[in-house]
Every structure is written in structure tokens, then in C-alpha cells.
Design a protein around this nucleic acid. Structure first.
Length: 286
DNA sequence: GGAAGCTCCTGAAAGC
DNA sequence: TGCTTTCAGGAGCTTC
């Protein structure tokens, strides 16, 4: 499941292997992969033909390659199972190949492979800052040097929701998904259902620092791979799954206190937590 | 307007 | 062996 570290690994791969190259042709093999393209797959392909792709950029879990003229860009989101692979044209097509970009230099092609089709690609207009229009509501991520810590803490405590919901709210803080939310909460000894208005400012700062720390550590080892669904542009897995403290460890002892980690159903997904270290607060702050 | 819940999707794994 | 059910979850959309 690609979150910020995994997407950043892919962005770096695109910057190395794709930026600066000119698209010869785009081929859409599954319409759902370009469902955000209002005018459809033919329009998507037509807009890409002949354009030179600039430096790969990222905001949260979104990636984009601006066109050389800066007016439009190729925007992508990997969803749950999306992969952007740089492959030799002679390599057989992957089972779930959805979009292919061939380049004028005849070298490696860019393939968008996505088993569960939650990801998508689109050609979008960029604003004056070079940001795709549809990302206007996406907050900066905590690894962004221009992330506003104070503003985030104020907004977090003003929310009338619970802390894990807030961490997954991409308009508040981007890049955090289910895995790193659980890891940041475990490191901060916070229960996922803790109301945000009961968080003190120091606790909020601790949570933000832990989110940063865990994602930085994951990025250093290529991200988290549980299966073949997340790989970098060369098809290689990351190694951070070996370093997770909570996520995916149901029944295994907490590394702090030895209590078995629990998995709870939460919003049609799972939350992993230590029932001893991460207790539910009894009441809201006044 | 903000928060909560639903839905999309595929394939592996588990259960029968 | 083969069929059915469960599970994984990002984010747009709908409902309250």
C-alpha cells in the first residue's frame, strides 16, 4: 500500500528514468485507469503524444510530471496497488498493465500496472505554482520543508473528530495512510479513537514528530512492502515491513510492554494498537 | 460546512 | 476439488 515514503521512492525513480524524455505514444489498456480524464482515454493519449516530461514532483501520495511548457502535467495516484514501472519494451506485458507510454528515444517504456484499479493517471492543467488543479485541497506533507507545523497543530486540535481520522485526512496532512498512522500512534502511545480536541499541544507535536520519524526511516530503506503490490520503478521491494512496531503484528508482543498487539475493525479497515500502551481516554477535555 | 459512512475493485487466503 | 466469503484500503461521493 503506497504511502508517502513509497511514493517518494517512485518519484525518485521517475526523475531518474523518465524526466526529460519525450513521449512518442500513450496507450490506454483499461478505461478505469484514466477515469479522472474528463474527455476519456483517447483525449489522455492525444494530450501526451509528443510532449517532453519535466522533473517529477510529488505532494502527499500524488505524483506528477509537468510538461516542458509548464501548462499541463501527467498526474498519477497509485491507489492501493498501482505501480509505475520502467521496463524494456521487450519485457512481456504484466497481467494488470493499464497504461503504457513509449518514448521517442526507443528506450525503456513507462508502464502503469494496477491490480485493484484504485489508482489513476490523468493529464491536468497546472496552476501558477505548477500544482495540478485537482490537488488544491491536498495539504503539504510532513517531509515538505514548507509544511506548517504550528498551523497543523492548531487545525488538528480544532477538529471535532478522532486522531486517526485526522491523520488520514489529506486536507489536513498529506501522505499518511493506514500503516504509518498506526505506527505514529504507537510511537506516541495514543489510541486511534482519541478525540483530537483532547490532544495537548505537546502531544500533537509528539505525534507529528513521530509521523515524520517513521516515514523518514521507511524512506531510507525503500518503503514498506508486504507483497508484490508495492515496488519501485525497477520492480524492487522496500524493507521497512521488517521494522514495523504495530501494523500487521496482531497477537505479537508489544516491543515496549510485551502485551499482545490487537487488531480492531475501524472504518472498513484495520487498526493495530497496544491495548496497554495506547489506552482510550475516558473523557474529552473541557 | 463539517464529519461520518459508503463504494469502487481484484485476487489471495480461509472456510466449508 | 471447487465454490463462497472475507479481507486489504485511498479517496471521491453521498448522507446526515
Amino acid at each position: 500500500m503506497p504511502e508517502l515514503p513509497e511514493v517518494e521512492v517512485v518519484r525518485r525513480g521517475l526523475a531518474r528514468w523518465v524526466s526529460g524524455r519525450t513521449v512518442a505514444a500513450a496507450e490506454v489498456l483499461h478505461p478505469r485507469a484514466v477515469r479522472r480524464q474528463a474527455a476519456g482515454g483517447a483525449d489522455f493519449a492525444a494530450r501526451l503524444g509528443g510532449v517532453t516530461l519535466g522533473e517529477a514532483r510529488r505532494r502527499g501520495k500524488y505524483l506528477w510530471l509537468p510538461f516542458a511548457d509548464g501548462t499541463f502535467g501527467l498526474l498519477g495516484h497509485l491507489g492501493m496497488s498501482g505501480q509505475l514501472l520502467v521496463q524494456d519494451p521487450a519485457t512481456p506485458d504484466e497481467t494488470h498493465l493499464r497504461v503504457r507510454l513509449r518514448f521517442t528515444d526507443g528506450g525503456r517504456e513507462l508502464r502503469f500496472v494496477d491490480q485493484r484499479t484504485f489508482g489513476h493517471l490523468a493529464v491536468e492543467e497546472l496552476d501558477a505554482d505548477g500544482l495540478p488543479h485537482s490537488l488544491a485541497h491536498i495539504a503539504r506533507d510532513p517531509l515538505d520543508p514548507r509544511f506548517d507545523d504550528a498551523g497543523f497543530l492548531t487545525a488538528l486540535r480544532a477538529k471535532r473528530t478522532t486522531v486517526k481520522r485526522a491523520l488520514l485526512d489529506q486536507s489536513l496532512i498529506s501522505g499518511v495512510g493506514n500503516i504509518y498512522a498506526d505506527e505514529a500512534l504507537w510511537r506516541s502511545k495514543l489510541h486511534y479513537d482519541r478525540p483530537t480536541d483532547t490532544l495537548t499541544r505537546p502531544l500533537g507535536q509528539l505525534l507529528l514528530a513521530n509521523a515524520r520519524e517513521v516515514m523518514t526511516a521507511a524512506l531510507a530503506v525503500g518503503g514498506t512492502s508486504f507483497d508484490s503490490l508495492y515496488v519501485n520503478v525497477n520492480g524492487e521491494s522496500g524493507y521497512f515491513s521488517r521494522s514495523l512496531d504495530a501494523y500487521g503484528r496482531e497477537g505479537e508482543p508489544c516491543y515496549r510492554c510485551g502485551t499482545p498487539i490487537r487488531r480492531a475493525a475501524w472504518m472498513n479497515r484495520s487498526s493495530y494498537f497496544c491495548p496497554r500502551c495506547q489506552r482510550v481516554p475516558r473523557q474529552r477535555a473541557a
